[in-house]
Design a protein around this nucleic acid. Sequence first.
DNA 1: CTACGGATTTTCT
DNA 2: GAAAATCCGTAGT
Length: 221
Amino acid sequence: MTSTPSPSKLSAPGRRWTHSDFATDPESLARRLLGQRLVAVSARGVQRTAGIIVETEAYLGIVDKAAHSYNGRRTLRNESMWGGPGIAYVYFTYGMHHCFNVVCGNVGEPVAVLVRALEPVEGITLMRRRRLANRSRPHRPLPERELCAGPAKLCQALAIDRRLDGVDLSRSLRLWIEHGPNPPSNAGTIAVTSRIGVGYAQEWSEAPLRFLLVNSRCTSR
DNA sequence: CTACGGATTTTCT
DNA sequence: GAAAATCCGTAGT
């Protein structure tokens, strides 16, 4: 009976990602995050929202003109990019939006993966309420597939903001990743394209660093 | 379905 | 002072 491997030691659904799971290069992590579950708990610990990650982008750090840490740029805003594997990097942009990244790589290496879209799984009613707040009326009905179909949309739906910048995803009670029902070897269903919204990055704007689950209806485009 | 312009304010030059 | 890892509403195909 001891010779039977326990599935829970591999990637059992629901098991939380640990520190070492994040310690890999951004391209590998961007692929491996697809199919995994992002879970957020409200500040008072009551409301829980979650979704399956269906779209990611890798940001390669010092060499990557599209990365906030390009050329070693280190400021108050992007300090979390140096926090090491498993740290959340949440930034504010365009005067009104938040985006959520998972820092990875080696300790002190400013590389990360932007989570761009989720398939909603838990707390869908709450997600819809949050997404409809602060919108001009009248508005058209908001289909479930659009609740988290974009990096700022998912932050709104899961109430991720700068208060979660710098938290440790392997230890936080507010934000973490759980192993999804599918193993990372779902490579056949992954499409790769250039990254969105980084036209300023010249030759790096075309790099194939965006990853999507082809069969998902919840991606950003 | 695609295309475009405005919103809105932090952040860094 | 300018840009920003975006989104939404409107207009058109």
